[in-house]
Amino acid sequence: MEKFVTLTSTIVPLPIENVDTDQIIPARFLKATSKEGFGDNLFRDWRYDKNDQPVQSFVLNNPVYKGEILVAGKNFGSGSSREHAAWAIAGYGFKVVVSSFFADIFKNNAMNNFVLPVVVTDEFLSGIFAGVNADPQMTLTIDLENQQITNNATGKSEHFAINSYKKECFLNGFDDIDYLLSKKDTIEEYESLFL
């Protein structure tokens, strides 16, 4: 996978709370057997009306807002465990999702697809929404090495948490399965002791 070190980008703001994975990708689009193409249906029922016409008021249809960073209200990704939600976000072109709170399974799924979930304080999140309201061209910078997110409109920065194993995975572009496969002996030893 592509390595992730730092990213500076304009943002797409979605100031809605409790965005569930049924909104990120509705169930009727889960029938594919590959990981491709889900980005086209990201936020499908907010993005298109029942005649498949773009809903002009929805942020993804507003040409003013674009970028590789999605910024969403608290408790993003609740509900279903569908990894298709992470595939849809990655497929659309987002590399980072910023929120003040993520649902657990979504967070794991995002990281397993090299989409970085960045948790910020409620105050920092409000600052981003206020900033992008005033200037849609405002940018955020994510510095993974130093675990720092910066609102370039205000110059304010915040530290974010990520465990050092996952950080290494992002910085080097390797995944969990490679690591687990290298531990087969340990797994067999565990089985012989405990099963």
Binding site: S81, E83, A86, N109, N112, D176, I187
Partner: peptide
């Protein structure tokens, strides 16, 4: 507990998953 598809693949391949302790 529920897991994502990447984790399903991990279990199919190794009967293990990576999880942070809740």
């Amino acid at each position: 507990f529920g897991i994502g598809t990447s984790e399903v693949e991990m279990v199919l391949a190794t009967q293990c998953v990576f999880q942070s302790k809740p």
